[in-house]
């Protein structure tokens, strides 16, 4: 786990630390790849997203604050928050946003940066679920529910399995548990596709950064 510079937030109004600048650049690269990502600067802080979010009550930073904090130059804190891992992708905020900001997709972008940077809140292993899931897909081509949950809980909180024994038994008794994973026939084809696609997702020098920064209108803040 990477620890962030405690001064990662804005040093002074309009002046960002080096870490914050790097994170901001990564985030801008990510949002540039979301259709309409630049609409982020249309946010009027109305709070419709927070009011629509089914899990905002459990968040430490609400969806509205996520956008405000990004503007204030505190991406480091956003990445350490519970918030990005609490989003269940229900898209209610995205549906209702009067500025048509793709809030759910922005949160996905933050999750990807957090995983890339290795920044996670302590004792909060949600990202392990996503990573275990992707390993399953590479291995079998399909998601294997039993394997996914076993690996997830053994790797994070083994007591979670104990707590779920009744649920597991009930599902098994009703013929809803598969004891062996399905493997697709042409797994090699899928692996080739994944390997090729991964080359586009690896961190690389983005030539588009200037364009993005200008489009979002934050270039002066970043200096």
């Amino acid at each position: 786990m990477k620890t962030l510079d405690p001064l990662a937030g804005p040093i002074a109004p309009g002046v960002l630390s080096k870490t914050e600048q790097e994170l901001r650049a990564a985030f801008l690269d990510e949002i540039d790849r979301i259709p309409g990502g630049a609409r982020l600067n249309q946010c009027i802080q109305c709070g419709t997203c927070t009011a629509s979010c089914p899990v905002s009550h459990a968040m430490d930073i609400t969806p509205r604050q996520v956008i405000a904090m990004f503007r204030a130059g505190a991406i480091g804190e956003l990445l350490e928050s519970r918030t990005i891992w609490l989003c269940a992708s229900c898209y209610h905020c995205t549906l209702r946003c009067p500025a048509q900001i793709q809030i759910t997709d922005l949160i996905y972008a933050l999750k990807r940066i957090a995983i890339e940077e290795g920044i996670f809140p302590k004792r909060f292993p949600v990202h392990v679920m996503s990573e275990t899931f992707t390993r399953n897909v590479k291995r079998y081509g399909r998601n294997y529910e039993v394997g996914l949950l076993l690996r997830y809980f053994l790797g994070t909180k083994p007591m979670g399995l104990f707590a779920r024994r009744r649920a597991g038994y009930a599902l098994w008794r009703h013929g809803r548990i598969k004891l062996r994973p399905d493997k697709i026939k042409d797994i090699e084809q899928l692996r080739k596709i994944i390997a090729k696609a991964e080359t586009f997702d690896l961190p690389q020098e983005k030539v588009t950064r200037e364009k993005v920064t200008a489009a979002v209108g934050y270039e002066s803040i970043g200096r």
Partner: peptide, 25 residues
């Protein structure tokens, strides 16, 4: 025939282009 996992919400949290490619197969 020989469909693979759609990627669901989990893949998108890790790698974007791969998530699209897995689904696009």
């Amino acid at each position: 025939e020989d469909w693979n996992c759609c990627g669901a919400t989990a893949y998108m949290s890790v790698q974007k282009t791969v998530a699209f490619a897995v689904s696009a197969r």
